[in-house]
């Protein structure tokens, strides 16, 4: 049985004179687990904030069947709902969003991912990134076309090669990780961040273990850091701590 122990959340626009194009889902009890998510509207196109909100609204209505979410079908439904935006307003025809969600089930995390938000889990005093960014740079590195060091001076870090949008091919990632691969005790810490948040985590990926182990402390520490250095984009974090009971061998 999985229980939500604690949660830390923030979601702010880069500046207060503009809309926040990020949307998020705080841990929501669905079936025998919890669903949480972050969606980041793709800023270069009109309707980014609407697209990310649709992604979260549709996701929040998802049902778990057999202890799992149908990731592919969920993404397809969201894509078709975003496509409807252009019927309301032609300028929204390229509206797009990323979406990264996690369903914390009884035995492990099921992750659905498209775009460049990230999911991390805590392993001891480190955060381990579970998702892979769907960015132009990451793809070029994966295909051996550039080395990471060669891309530092080139543009494209903010360019995605897939997202949830009417005219873009879906290239989503689905991951399942049993809790037993993450931790030896009965607690797991999970963090979902938009790029505006993890940009500042990456700069110095360290907090005290007590901070890392407490989602609300983590949220307030990261938020302070972002405010100190000035946000570069809208920034969102959903962090959660779960407890689960390891399987008891009744024999």
């Amino acid at each position: 049985m999985i229980k939500l122990i604690g949660c830390g959340v923030f979601s702010y626009p880069k500046n207060f004179d503009r809309n926040n194009q990020d949307s998020f889902l705080t841990p929501r009890n669905i079936g025998n687990g919890f669903l949480l998510a972050v969606a980041d509207g793709v800023g270069a196109y009109h309707g980014a904030d609407k697209a990310s909100k649709i992604a979260i609204d549709v996701l929040a209505e998802t049902k778990a069947m057999g202890g799992k979410i149908d990731v592919e079908s969920t993404f397809r439904t969201i894509k078709s709902e975003i496509a409807k935006l252009s019927i309301l307003n032609e300028s929204f025809q390229d509206a797009a969003t990323t979406l990264t969600f996690c369903y914390a089930g009884e035995k492990g995390f099921q992750i659905g991912h498209i775009g460049d938000c990230r999911i991390y889990v805590r392993k001891n005093d480190k955060l381990i990134q579970l998702t892979k960014d769907h960015t132009q740079h990451q793809k070029l590195i994966d295909e051996g076309i550039y080395r990471a060091s060669e891309l530092k001076k080139l543009s494209g870090k903010n360019t995605l090669f897939t997202a949830l949008s009417k005219n873009i091919n879906l290239q989503s990632q689905e991951i399942y990780i049993p809790y037993s691969e993450i931790t030896n005790d009965s607690y797991v810490d999970l963090f979902i961040m938009s790029d505006g948040a993890y940009h500042f985590w990456e700069k110095r990926p360290k907090f005290l273990l007590n901070t890392l182990s407490d989602p609300s402390s983590f949220a307030s520490s990261l938020h302070r850091r972002i405010k100190r250095f000035q946000p570069i984009d809208d920034y969102t974090l959903v962090a959660a701590k779960f407890s689960f009971l390891p399987e008891i061998n009744e024999n």
């Binding site: 793709v42 800023g43 132009q136 295909e143 903010n158 997202a163 873009i168």
Partner: peptide, 17 residues
């Protein structure tokens, strides 16, 4: 701003990147 890249042009003349 974050944007989405797409391959345009004619496949034969497209570089791998």
């Amino acid at each position: 701003l974050t944007k989405i890249a797409s391959a345009m042009g004619t496949t034969r003349y497209m570089a791998p990147e």
